[in-house]
Design a protein around this nucleic acid. Sequence first.
RNA 1: CGGGGCGUGGCGCAGUCCGGUAGCGCACCGGUAUGGGGUACCGGUGGUCGGAGGUUCGAAUCCUCUCGCCCCGACCA
Length: 574
Amino acid sequence: MRMAHLFGRTIREAPADAEFPSHQLMVRAAMIRPLGAGIYSLLPLGYRVIRKVEQIVREEMDAIGGQEMLMPFVHPADVWRRSGRFDAIGPEMVRLKDRGDRDMVLAMTHEEVVTDLTGTEVSSYKQLPQIIYHLQSKFRDEPRARGGLIRVREFTMKDSYSLDADEAGLDESYRQHAIAYTRIFERLGLDFIRVGADVGMMGGSASDEYMAFSPHGEDIILICPNGDYAANREVAEFQADTPEREELLPMEDVETPNAPTIQALADQLEFPLSRTAKAVFYKSGTGKFIFVVIRGDLDVNETKLRNAIRESELIPATAEEIKAIGAEPGYGSPLGVKDCLIVADQSVVRSPNLVAGANRPGWHVRNVNLGRDYEAEVVADIAAATEGARCPICGTPMQARRAIEVGNIFKLGTRYTTAMGATYLDQNGKAQPVVMGSYGIGIGRSAASVVEQNYDDRGIVWPISIAPFHVSLLTIGKDDDVRAATDQLYADLQAAGIEVLYDDRGERPGVKFNDADLIGNPVRLSISRRTLDNNEVEMKLRTEPDAELVPLDGVVGHVRGFVDRLLAELAPSA
RNA sequence: CGGGGCGUGGCGCAGUCCGGUAGCGCACCGGUAUGGGGUACCGGUGGUCGGAGGUUCGAAUCCUCUCGCCCCGACCA
């Protein structure tokens, strides 16, 4: 590609609203342009990156027996009603009507369509197992898009679906996907980890996420330094510490003016947070009042709480609602409250003689004990793990790291096939629901995550597997013979199968060097008066600080070797 | 949706408080010199000041409504 005719210009200053490095750099490097909130055009340079990511995904999906297909982007609502998700999913699903006033939705995922197809295409155990996939647009009307390609509303996802006869088959399909995903993210050059995750709106029995490390990640994962455990904070378990055994003391009122927060209370009583019981109030989607008791030094993990009480929605309770059950905001305790579900974190079971609220302003109660002074309907681990929480396997303090979710795999089981009647006949001629898994990779998000992990103060540093081009070729100066030599090298490199972005613009050398660094192709070649007079080409790798001079007549083979070596470095480990 | 902020040439901004002919830098076009890290100078092109309504002799500026975008929180690839 000749840069003089490239559609899209690099810009010096990033738009003021771009905050993430990947967002700023991809806009500046003429790879993406916003059209609306969370809606982007991919310019030619950016689309080359995306196509390479897609190709890697294709190759690895094909390698585990995936069959590529394509399902529609606009769905009749009916298919979503059959799965029950038309009503279950909130406003993140875009609903519209066609001219016949029929309800339609924009695809936010494709389980329903796959299940519908499974019903028509699969009828015998002999046809199983199957893995099908496609690369297709999704639209999720996110409450808040952000961060360039990291979190958008319209995006391309590789989603695949496994169809198996039984759970054992699903386990194998899941395992195969795990292998493919590891290979894909290794080939992208990502620093990532696979972690256990929450099943969320997908439902099903198991889920793992592929998380690319980044300080801008929206998720926090907890990692055992011994490699025993890694999980999303949403579900991360940890070993509760075991407080010293104490005799249960009688309750005792204590005056605590101006201590409406747990920290203020602890300061006032000169008491560690871990010796207090904190009350947290929620209203569930089904209208139940949820009274959570947790030790003062811990925070509620709402995902764990939702799972523990089997509620899909939790809303913080209002002061009026809190008073209605007999509690006092800021001084709440489970003592004597009514009309609510009391949920205790496991931490309060083990911790005796806590300070809790007295349900009247300005007063707390010492030595409150679960089981003696109040009862909890549910006792579970609902605490959020934090940095330093102890590994549930080995007890070592865990690290907390931010990460971007680039892939997610789910064991769905028969949740969709049962609801929608997708069955096959087994060896005995008996109808069985097909057992399903679903597996996603965000294509643009993966590319942006690569940028988040590979940039410097000059621009993007692409791994060669998904760089827009292998080589940036610069002609320096205006001399005709320099220009002619660069033109020739451009042709020779292309003939050798090397992808070249040729900066043939009449720009100053500094402009070309800066743009080459910004765009971030792995190899930079420059020909100038000086190098041509010595029959040399300057070659510099984007990752290296220094350039080297290569004889002009051997440069194509030399570059070919570098490109092959760089590609080989990204070969999957297994 | 709740809270905060911003809309002025393609990008970054000033002007708004205190109404009086729309400005600066970059980019873009023409020219001269220059030619290995965003070169200098000269001359240009380009803007319904997000939109609608109102107040006023006069509105980017004041008022009302509205649309869009960004940031912080609850969701997800």
